[in-house]
């Protein structure tokens, strides 16, 4: 069981995250949702230990850096490296002067899992933003982390690749008894792929629970200031359809 006790986080005089406690069971996908500025990225960085000591405890014990795979929000990279070399860097701690065959095979497998094997020898800087985002995700997956912390991992992806990546992350958590924590803006995707959701607003954890209990019309209206329709798809999943916001004349 993963438990995380996070202390207050301040930026200057402003408190960006209030103290909170999160739990997740192995094999679970936990979605972090909330409007812009709610503290989602700060929470994820605390969880992954990027800004200091990590807040996450696995069965009471602190997780080592190599057991955590953290991916910050989408960013462009420009390095004269091939896609395979970029993924290989995910195993940085164990790499020697000669790259072992199992490291290469694991990197190639991580690319194949996301359907990227044919990009393996392409220069990283020649890829689109969405392709780079998927390559950087493969770089995390090759670390085989127990805790995968992802900040908007599908922000640059088209619909097909959003579904591929989220489906793979869900399968990864189940297969490896790992925990995936990810911030998402798309509430329908969050409802479809996450086992539990943590709703943040203005640095406060308002609620944590299954999507069906959290994603109500009232909660969305309150949290995002939009008028939504929450529908049920044929498979029972929630579909959130927001109404248009008319621009002032």
């Amino acid at each position: 069981m993963l438990t995380a006790t996070i202390r207050e986080v301040r930026k200057g005089r402003v408190t960006v995250l209030q103290p909170l406690r999160l739990t997740a069971a192995p094999g679970q996908v936990l979605g972090v949702i909330g409007p812009n500025g709610a503290g989602k990225s700060t929470l994820l960085r605390q969880l992954a230990g990027i800004d200091g000591a990590g807040a996450a405890r696995w069965s009471g014990e602190a997780l080592a850096a190599r057991q955590i795979g953290f991916m910050p929000q989408a960013f462009q990279v420009s390095a004269r490296l091939s896609v395979l070399e970029c993924v290989l860097l995910g195993r940085r701690e164990g790499l020697g002067w000669r790259v072992a065959a199992q490291d290469l095979a694991a990197s190639a497998a991580a690319l194949a899992a996301l359907g990227l094997e044919r990009l393996a020898q392409r220069p990283l800087e020649s890829l689109s933003g969405g392709q780079q985002q998927m390559v950087l995700l493969a770089q995390r997956l090759v670390r085989r982390p127990r805790l995968l912390v992802l900040d908007e991992p599908t922000s640059a992806l088209d619909l097909h690749h959003q579904l591929t990546v989220l489906g793979h992350l869900r399968a990864h958590a189940r297969r490896r008894d790992a925990i995936v924590v990810m911030a998402l803006h798309d509430l329908t995707m969050a409802a479809r792929f996450c086992d539990r959701l943590a709703l943040l607003q203005a640095g406060h954890l308002l609620a944590c629970g299954p999507p069906c209990t959290l994603l109500t019309s009232e909660a969305i209206r309150e949290g995002w200031q939009v008028e939504p329709e929450v529908l049920l798809a044929r498979d029972g999943g929630q579909v959130i359809v927001p109404h248009r916001i008319e621009a002032p004349q």
Binding site: S82, L84, E85, L104, A105, A108, G115, L116, E117, R118, L119, A120, Q121, R122, G130, Q131, H161
Partner: peptide
């Protein structure tokens, strides 16, 4: 999104 390209063999050639 995928395009033709070699895999691990390409890496060995690059080295």
């Amino acid at each position: 999104m995928t395009e033709p390209g070699p895999g691990i063999g390409g890496y060995a050639r690059r080295i």
